[in-house]
Design a protein around this nucleic acid. Structure first.
Length: 264
DNA sequence: AGTACCACCTGACGGC
DNA sequence: TGCCGTCAGGTGGTAC
């Protein structure tokens, strides 16, 4: 599930539940999710420390811990989420790493499929450098976006999803943004008009903003979004036509052939 | 610089 | 009921 809006919600959840509490123990249930850090190293870095702040960049959650400098970086893959719960309640099924606070609660980093990652980095900047991440999609202004999107060749959808260009958008929200901007996912990025680029930017800001306000819950976004129709009736809320499903650079893409023409 | 394909994983779902 | 292929909102690597 996790794209920018989801990770934003996770970050807020993390802030509410995990900041300023002493970590008594770190439990690694599935070492596979550790990215270039051993269980031992993770434990030694975090035990008897606490998280002092958390932020998000693209699809990453970053949490700074204190009494020694360092940041925990979480990437959620396709099926990741966080769960904060009381020590004596049932552990979530796919809990891979757990932070056991001294207050008797735990935070679990859950992942059904093991595509998520937990890593330690020196700083958010170091992570951005290491992963070559572009600016966050939620904090990109119109001119930056225009230059970015028109400066790339190939189809517009893979450009939106390219984390090196701009960080945070994935398959679902890229489809949503292009639907609202009325641009075909295979439209050539470099041939977009200034007006089209600006429209995509405007919709990107709008979609991200609303999705976050609706807690990234597809059931709660407005009915004129693509999202609530994508896995249900597949009827375009704008024209009443059927959505089409195609592959665009290997990812399944849903769009409305009547509302989203390649050229306009 | 693009794209296409594969790999990494688990689990749900539909067809037979 | 069971087996099988397909698909899923992630990234990273390879080859062309």
């Amino acid at each position: 599930m996790p794209e920018l809006p989801d990770v934003e919600i996770f970050t807020r959840y993390f802030k509410k539940t995990a900041l300023h509490k002493t970590i008594g123990e770190v439990r690694v249930n599935t070492a596979k999710v550790l990215d270039r850090v051993s269980s031992r190293e993770l434990r030694q870095s975090l035990e008897s420390k606490s998280f002092a702040e958390a932020r998000r960049h693209g699809k990453y959650l970053l949490a700074r811990f204190v009494k020694q400098r360092g940041w925990l970086a979480l990437h959620f893959g396709m099926t990741g989420y966080l769960e904060y719960f009381k020590d004596n309640s049932r552990t979530p099924r796919h809990s891979r790493v757990e932070f056991l606070f001294r207050n008797g609660y735990r935070l679990a980093f859950c992942n059904q499929r093991l595509l998520g990652k937990a890593a330690l980095v020196d700083s958010p900047e170091q992570l951005k450098g290491k992963k070559d991440l572009g600016p966050d999609a939620g904090r990109l202004n119109k001119d930056e976006f225009r230059a970015l999107i028109r400066g790339s060749r190939g189809a517009v959808k893979p450009a939106l999803m390219d984390q090196k260009r701009l960080a945070g958008l994935g398959n679902i929200y890229s489809d949503e943004i292009l639907f609202q901007a009325r641009v075909h996912p295979k439209a050539q990025s470099g041939r977009l008009s200034g007006a089209q680029a600006d429209r995509i930017h405007e919709k990107m800001r709008k979609v991200v903003d609303i999705a976050v306000r609706k807690k990234a819950d597809p059931q709660r976004v407005p009915r004129d979004f693509l999202l609530p129709h994508r896995d249900t009736d597949r009827i375009c809320p704008s024209c009443g036509g059927r959505f089409k499903k195609i592959k665009v650079s290997g990812r399944s893409s849903t769009y409305c052939p009547r509302c989203q023409k390649k050229t306009r």
